[in-house]
Every structure is written in C-alpha cells, then in structure tokens.
C-alpha cells in the first residue's frame, strides 16, 4: 500500500499522527511528514485508519 498526502488539503491537525504514529509526523512548522510511504502487513490497517480519520481527507492510500 502506498501513502500520499494532499498538501493543499492538509491543515495540520495531526490526526494521522495519532492514527498511525509509525507512519506520520508533523514537523516544527506543523506540516505533515510521511515516515514510511510504502507499507504492508499490520501497517496497512494503521494507514487505512489514518485515511479514514483525516478530517480534511488529505491522506490517500493506493
């Protein structure tokens, strides 16, 4: 599974970090950082939760 963030939509709420702390972080400016863009196994569940939980629908998985 591949993870992407639409930076135009992201508002920096950090909900992805709480959904999947191994996959996402916020930098000092509050901008999102993808720690691992390609995941498999249990981490796909965490990535899917992050996608579902993003209030701005900025997280995308393919």
């Amino acid at each position: 599974m591949h993870i992407d963030i639409d930076r135009g939509r992201c508002e920096g709420y950090g909900v992805c970090v709480q959904s999947a702390p191994d996959l996402f972080d916020l930098d000092d400016e509050g901008d999102p950082v993808i720690l691992r863009a390609d995941v498999d196994g249990d981490l796909t569940d965490a990535a899917a939760l992050a996608e579902r939980s993003c209030p701005m629908q900025a997280v995308q998985t393919t």
């Binding site: 508002e11 709420y13 950090g14 909900v15 709480q18 959904s19 939760l49 992050a50 579902r52 939980s53 209030p55 701005m56 629908q57």
Partner: peptide, 20 residues
Amino acid sequence: RNPVDTMAFDNGVHTCPGRT
C-alpha cells in the same frame, strides 16, 4: 480503542479548529 475517526469534532471543512 483510539477512536480517531470520531465524529465528535465534526468532519470536513467545519472540523473543530480547536481539536489540537
């Protein structure tokens, strides 16, 4: 449970700006 997808803060463009 970690219900991060809760609707408590609304969702979409009106998502609670005070969530953080």
